[in-house]
């Protein structure tokens, strides 16, 4: 049986099972403690940073408050909505969406650029069209709406 265990492993297992070790804490030096503490702080900080808000997975397009379509944010495509004064073109790419073009005079919703976070919204008021992103569930949404 032991003949089949690779030499290095048997040696390491024998050492690991050996008696008379120094206590675990003596294996850590000052720098190790400092590095572990820093790493723990960084990891703890990453939770609120990365789990704030939701990751958007759908784009909701509405006209006059009525749902026109829902687009999944996993394949690139373009979608045209006919509004009050012309056609608004919505562009979807993996994880984000934007208003590509709009007939509105001031182009606010076009200049807003890419929307990436859940509940971000672009409103093309003159054309009565809105584009809103939606996360995978409503309850973890940090924002009711995002505007810039």
């Amino acid at each position: 049986m032991t003949g089949r265990v690779p030499e290095g492993l048997r040696e390491l297992l024998a050492q690991a099972a050996g008696e008379g070790h120094a206590p675990w804490r003596t294996l850590l030096k000052a720098g190790d403690w400092a590095l572990l503490l820093m790493a723990a702080l960084l990891v703890a900080a990453s939770y609120p940073l990365l789990w704030r808000g939701g990751v958007a997975d759908r784009a909701i397009v509405k006209r006059d408050g009525q749902l026109v379509t829902e687009l999944a944010l996993n394949t690139p495509r373009k979608y045209e909505v006919v509004g009050a004064i012309g056609t608004t073109v919505i562009e979807v790419q993996p994880g984000r969406a934007r208003v590509l073009s709009d007939p509105g005079p001031r182009q606010y919703c076009v200049q807003q650029g890419w929307l990436t976070r859940a509940n971000a919204v672009a409103i093309c008021a003159p054309n009565h069209v809105t584009l809103q992103l939606s996360g995978r569930s409503g309850q973890n949404g940090a924002y009711d709406t995002l505007n810039y």
Binding site: H21, A39, A40, V43, S46
Partner: peptide
């Protein structure tokens, strides 16, 4: 990433302690 980072911290520390003990012998 936070979950992976937590796992890396925990398992990294444990593996490092085991390696340190093996090297200590």
């Amino acid at each position: 990433l936070p979950l992976f980072a937590t796992a890396a911290l925990v398992f990294g520390a444990i593996n490092g302690l085991v390696a340190a003990r093996l090297l200590d012998l």
